Structures are given as structure tokens and as C-alpha cells.
Computed example of a mutant assay.
Amino acid sequence: MLGAAAALAGCTSTNWEADCETTAQGVIECPVEHRPPSPDLDAELLDGTRFDPAGHRGQVVVVNFWGSWCPPCRAEAADLEATYQATRDQGVAFLGINIKDERDKARAFEQGRVTYPSLFDPGSRLALDFDIPPNSIPATIIVDRDGRIAVVIRQAVRQEGLQPLVERVATEAPAPPADSADG
């Protein structure tokens, strides 16, 4: 889940990504049986309040790493917002993670661009937990309903490329509870 204890810090393409497919467009898609758990997203939002990952259990969560200083991040903001608006009624949540930024600049960047919340990660701790080097943003990750990483995109996104991926993950059924087979 979003609060999973296992983190991806230190993972490289020789670890969990080895069992995933990389498309010609550079999108990494992980089959259900090889998806790693998402790192914990219990952190502070840009407005200073605490984000509660429990509020998104059972949802697909699209996580976008961005900075106000990043031109490709500015370019993709409208496509992210459009995809969010088009998929949020399908049990999809969006969450930005602002890195290497000042809080005021990050808030100013978001205003009028996106309506979903962003975590404040000036030290890039969360980016590193997700194996996203801070110098390689923007990056977008799709976390499935079971809190596992389904898709990793380490480049700017466009709605026509992102939305079908989000919708496909949103149509997947969550895994049954582990104890349901024991009866």
C-alpha cells in the first residue's frame, strides 16, 4: 500500500525493473506478479498539513515528481490535470511530489495549474525512495489499488500517453486479502 514498509531506495534496473517491460517510449510497465510495493508517502503537503496515505487505500494513485524550476514540469502540468479530471471518478487519485524547491515557489507554480495536492520534499527523500534521481524529473509513477508500482515514466508525460495507462491500471481488480484462502 502507500504506507508499505518496503521501499525501493537503492534499487536499480537490475533489481525489480528486470522483471518489467520497457516500451519503445521508455515507459516501464510491471506485470502484476512482479510489482514492488510503493514506498511510504506519509509526508507534509505544500500547505503544511500532513498527508494521510490511508485516505487513498484501494485507489490507483498517480504520483508525479516535479519542481517549479523544471521547464518540462511546467509543460506537462496541463496534461496531468486533464488526466486527473478524466480519471478521478474511476477511483484514481493524483499526488504531486515537489522536490528541490522553496515552498513559496512550489505553491505559486501549482496555483491555477493543478487541483490535486502535492507533497513537499525539498531534500528529495521521497524521490530517492522511489528510485527517481532528483536530476531526472519530471517522472510519473502509477501505483495500483494494492499499493504496488505498476508503471514508471521517467520523462514528461502527455495526456494521450498517460491516460490509457492510468485507465488500464484502474480496471484491474485488487488482489484478494492474503488470509481469504485460509478460510
Rank of each mutant, 00 (worst) to 15 (best):
Gly147Ala: 11
Ala54Arg: 14
Thr171Arg: 15
Pro37Ala: 14
Asp131Met: 05
Pro37Phe: 09
Ser38Gly: 11
Val152Trp: 00
Val92Trp: 07
Ala178Val: 09
Ser124Met: 05
Cys11Tyr: 13
Pro122Phe: 04
Glu172Arg: 12
Phe109Ala: 02
Glu167His: 05
Arg74Thr: 06
Ala93Cys: 05
Ala86Lys: 07
Arg168Trp: 05
Ala86Phe: 07
Gln111His: 09
Leu45His: 03
Ala24Phe: 04
Asp121Gln: 05
Asp146Phe: 02
Ala5Trp: 10
Leu8Lys: 04
Leu126Thr: 01
Phe130Arg: 02
Gly67Tyr: 00
Ile132His: 00
Val157Phe: 00
Thr87Gly: 09
Lys105Pro: 03
Gly91Met: 11
Arg145Tyr: 06
Glu76Thr: 08
Ala9Ile: 12
Pro37Ile: 06
Gly55His: 10
Gln111Ala: 15
Met1Thr: 11
Asp182Ile: 12
Leu165His: 02
Thr87Asn: 10
Arg35Trp: 04
Glu44Val: 14
Ser38Asn: 09
Gly96Phe: 01
Ile132Cys: 01
Pro39Phe: 03
Glu76Arg: 09
Ile99Arg: 00
Ala178Thr: 06
Glu44Gly: 07
Asp79Ala: 15
Gln163Tyr: 01
Ser180Asp: 13
Gln59Pro: 05
Ala127Pro: 01
Gln159Pro: 01
Val61Ile: 11
Thr14Phe: 12
Thr14Ile: 05
Gly123Phe: 03
Leu95Ser: 00
Thr140Arg: 02
Pro53Thr: 10
Glu172Trp: 13
Ala9Gly: 11
Lys100Glu: 10
Leu2His: 13
Ser38His: 09
Asp146Trp: 00
Arg145His: 08
Val62Ser: 02
